[in-house]
Design a protein around this nucleic acid. Structure first.
Lengths: 322, 322
DNA sequence: ATCCCTTATACTCACAGCAAGTATATGCTG
DNA sequence: CAGCATATACTTGCTGTGAGTATAAGGGAT
């Protein structure tokens, strides 16, 4: 039957007018002094972004252009995060759709001179419940747990109640379940659904509700950050991406602190060192530094050769479960 | 400095005219009789697709609409694959960009009555080198290896030669390296770069080159299929997505054959059963079937409860390395 | 009925990965 | 010199898992 083919072509033609605007959004991450940071503009509430335009050679180069212009940073490693088109994102004047393509970029903080109107923020400012390096942060049990219980009990249906509480239990590791650092996005979605972040109650003119203390962001940028954190926490376990965040030369402890900063949890030192060395991810420079205090630490550099063959095996990092 | 902010706003305004067209492309996968299939239209060379339009509630619902209209299939599980904007994809008449957002959907083949002009194709028709269930297929060592050696040696620079051959070695497991089924995309990119598939030499009017025998597709659809295969092969190892492809009731061997079909390699049976059962992914229905021949096989169904808590641990499947 | 085939199911073994604990060496600082 | 922080080595024990083998149950051909 060729009707189908013809109808197809006609339908496709009929849609010609529905052009959309495409926005590129960058989540740029660096780690400095054991603190994972994201690059922001505005009131530390906006990610670098800009429209995809004709003169851009590709999506990635368009993104690089915007970030460079807005923050003065040259991006290195880039990977696509997610593409979305929310209903809320329709332009007011014309009925027009906006598609947002978000990217995750990894750099080093010192790389560029700070541009005006941009700065680095610890990502734990936006997600205070994600940093478990000094044990479970108080906000989890003191604030989130009771609020999420309230939220779960806020519905009639018993099944929904149970389902809500189960989701919270899994995501936050309540009731002796273990904390899974990779569930950052699920956790953000929970606190959003429960109306505990500013973004969720924006535009509503109800009485100011009791929010969980945390820094909010413009539009859905905080959601993008959550997506990026989750992606990064998962990826460091099987790809040597940490090195994109390291200076050319570093000590093993610095490397460990960086991974810990990203993962939001501590790592058993001997295991970490064994794993790094047996995988031959790094090589000694022959130098050592005394700046760390204590016994001078050997300096290492990343073995770029592994970028090739680590495609096979994957890099594993020992993230302690307990 | 507020220049920056002002300049930013102006730049953004100046780009207003650069609207783009957004295409949604669906890779719909099912497994039937131990054969992984993709849903195609046209001459079995096109994936269901259509433009994103104003009346679509969301990207996903737009995609569902197009697939349903073109193939009669209602999609269930959907996940985003990748978004790209190739330089080649510029409209001829107007200078306009086309963004393609691709999705991976998992269904069961029997679900819908076949629509005209659409059909299921084994994905190994497009990637004959990916099926290692009966050992390494001949095409790998007899055709691909010599052609890739030629390709690697086709450059002057010794470093490039070595790098090309190393990539090929890793991707295809030459020289006693082990085959990694997840590198489907890297392999396709290699054969593409080497000019061994029809898509790579399209539009060139050089003499017909010696291609590797395989079915080609329109535009870059075959690349999308490769991306989807890679994603799926990776994902079945840590998320229980296989069950989206299974009938409501099945035997353990059927389940194993499905996983093997996707992974393109065989699994050690006792290990597979142990892992499935100890993870409590399935439960017995109490029935058994004699249709399989031999001793009647117990029938199982998927435990939907695990969809929740498998967020934590992840589902693991025993894919033999050797 | 018997043999043989196929499939299902159970048990065992061995090794690698890895989390965790403990101990020691080294060099700085006060 | 004491005290401290770091680096580095050794050991232990659990678990996951790849792999082999054995047994049970039904169907079909002889």
């Amino acid at each position: 039957m060729d009707d189908q083919a013809i109808r197809l072509r006609k339908d496709r033609a009929a849609f010609k007018a529905d052009d959309v605007k495409v926005d590129l959004i960058a989540l740029v991450v660096a780690v400095n002094d054991s603190e994972p940071c994201v690059l922001t503009i505005g009131q530390a509430d906006t990610l670098p972004s800009g429209p995809f335009a004709l003169e851009h050679r590709s999506l990635q180069s368009g993104l690089r252009g915007w970030v460079e212009q807005q923050t003065g940073h040259r991006l290195g490693y880039i990977e696509q995060l997610y593409t979305f088109a929310d209903r809320d994102r329709i332009g007011a004047e014309r009925q027009q759709r906006v598609i947002s393509i978000s990217y995750l970029a990894l750099t080093r903080k010192e790389q560029a001179a700070g541009s005006p109107k941009c700065g680095w923020q610890s990502w734990y400012e936006y997600f205070p419940w994600e940093d478990h390096r000094s044990g479970t942060p108080p906000v989890v049990l003191d604030v989130l747990r009771p609020r999420l219980i309230e939220w779960a009990n806020g519905v009639r249906d018993a099944a929904t109640r149970r389902e809500r509480w189960q989701r919270a239990t899994i995501a936050f590791g309540f009731d002796d379940r273990l904390w899974n650092e990779e569930l950052t996005l699920q956790r953000y979605e929970l606190v959003y659904e429960a109306g505990l972040v500013q973004e969720a109650v924006r535009g509503r003119d109800a009485a100011p509700p009791p929010l969980v203390p945390s820094k909010s962001m413009v539009a859905d940028h905080r959601r993008i950050v959550a997506t990026g954190i989750a992606r990064l926490r998962s990826k460091i376990k099987y790809r040597p991406v940490v090195f994109e965040l390291m200076p050319p030369v570093f000590t093993l402890l610095q490397l460990q602190r960086t991974v810990e900063a990203l993962a939001g949890r501590l790592i058993h030192k001997p295991n970490f060192r064994r794993l790094i060395e047996q995988q031959e991810l790094v090589e000694e420079t022959g130098e050592a530094t005394t700046e760390t205090g204590g016994r001078p630490a050997k300096l290492f550099r990343f073995r770029h050769a592994v970028l090739d063959d680590r495609l096979i095996a994957g890099t594993k990092l020992p993230l302690a479960r307990g």
